[in-house]
Structure formats: structure tokens, C-alpha cells
């Protein structure tokens, strides 16, 4: 990592600490905001957070590694989470899973080389009457069939293109809102 970007990350983390507080119970919100802004919580960030909160870095790593929605490895701009729990499985998740792998060219647990997509299994998404259910960042797709997978992926690519075209202020603080997420749209089955 370049010194300039390290400095920026350090400043961003200090801004987060100011916002959420310097106490241990602020740790998870700080890490969640970092995850949203950086698509991961890198090792360096864990050290800075630990310094700021007066914790051992191993404590921070322990928390990051515990929660499924936090990761120290970079995740894609779009995290696609397919529900693998029983009700969705009964509604035939398997062909949808297969087609997601085919469209993205990656297996579950992997990220595309362009850094756009991560494919993951999710534990129950709470959409058991609408399965198979897919969560893409904060967007919900219900009753997904294999033939709809291509359109879902294309939706994301369009959002990515639009987002990349927007100039972003280099000194903007780390905040989830800095990365606009597609609004919830429950696509019809």
C-alpha cells in the first residue's frame, strides 16, 4: 500500500472513531463502516483501529474473522449472497447457484478478478416464502430462476458503470453513503 493511501485510510479511521466513539462497543460499527467503504478491513486498518481504541490488534482480528459480513480480504463491489437454507433449497437453489457460477466465472467464496463481484452463500435471508432468494449488497431478488441470473448480473454492471463515471471527492470521509447502493427493489417472481 502506498504511503499516501495509508495516510488517507488512517485519517478516515480517525474520522470514524470520532463519530462512533473511542469505546469498545463502537468497534463493530467502525468495522462495518470500513467494510462498506473499503470492501474489506485490511490488516493495516485493523492495526490503526486497535491503536485508536487501545486494543490489541489480535482482538480486532478476532472480531473481523468472526462475522460473516466482515472480511480482511477485498470483496467485490457487489457481494452476491445466495440463500442456501432449506426453504430456498426446496424451491431449487441449486440451478441458480450453478448459473451464477457460470455467468461470473467464479465459484462460491471467490471474487472476480476485476473486483466487481463476490459470490457467497448466505445463511437464511428471511425470505423463506419467496425462495430462491438472493441478496446483492442491499438489494433483494426473490423467486430467482436460472434464466434471470444474467439480467441480475447485468443490472449490477450498469450500476457499476454509472458509479465509476461519477467523480468522487478524494478527501471525502469514509462513510457508507459515499458508495451509493442500489435501492431495494424486490423483483417480481
Amino acid at each position: 500500500m502506498l504511503v499516501g493511501s495509508q495516510q488517507k485510510l488512517q485519517d478516515d479511521i480517525r474520522a470514524l472513531v470520532e463519530r462512533h466513539g473511542r469505546t469498545r462497543d463502537a468497534l463493530l460499527p467502525i468495522l462495518q463502516d470500513l467494510q462498506a467503504a473499503q470492501s474489506c478491513v485490511p490488516d493495516f486498518a485493523m492495526q490503526v483501529v486497535a491503536d485508536e481504541l487501545g486494543l490489541h490488534p489480535a482482538e480486532v482480528y478476532g472480531v473481523v474473522s468472526f462475522y460473516a459480513f466482515l472480511d480482511h480480504r477485498p470483496r467485490g463491489r457487489f457481494v452476491m449472497r445466495l440463500c442456501r437454507t432449506i426453504s430456498c433449497e426446496l424451491a431449487r437453489t441449486a440451478p441458480v447457484a450453478r448459473q451464477l457460477e457460470n455467468e461470473l466465472g467464479i465459484a462460491f467464496g471467490e471474487t472476480t478478478r476485476d473486483g466487481r463481484f463476490t459470490l457467497e452463500w448466505a445463511a437464511c435471508l428471511g425470505l423463506c416464502d419467496q425462495g430462491p432468494a438472493l441478496l446483492v449488497n442491499d438489494r433483494v431478488y426473490t423467486k430467482v430462476t436460472p434464466d434471470r441470473v444474467h439480467a441480475i448480473v447485468e443490472d449490477c454492471r450498469k450500476v457499476f458503470g454509472a458509479h465509476a463515471a461519477q467523480p468522487s471527492a478524494p478527501s471525502a470521509p469514509v462513510h457508507p453513503a459515499a458508495h451509493p447502493q442500489p435501492a431495494l427493489a424486490a423483483a417480481k417472481g
Binding site: T85, I86, S87, A123, C124, G126, L127, C128, D129
Partner: peptide, 11 residues
């Protein structure tokens, strides 16, 4: 934290 498989009433 409605995580029990098959539960979605809290949603």
C-alpha cells in the same frame, strides 16, 4: 437478529 431458518415474521 431473526436468523432461524424458516423464520421471516420479524421482517
Amino acid at each position: 437478529d431473526e436468523g432461524e431458518p424458516g423464520t421471516f415474521k420479524d421482517r
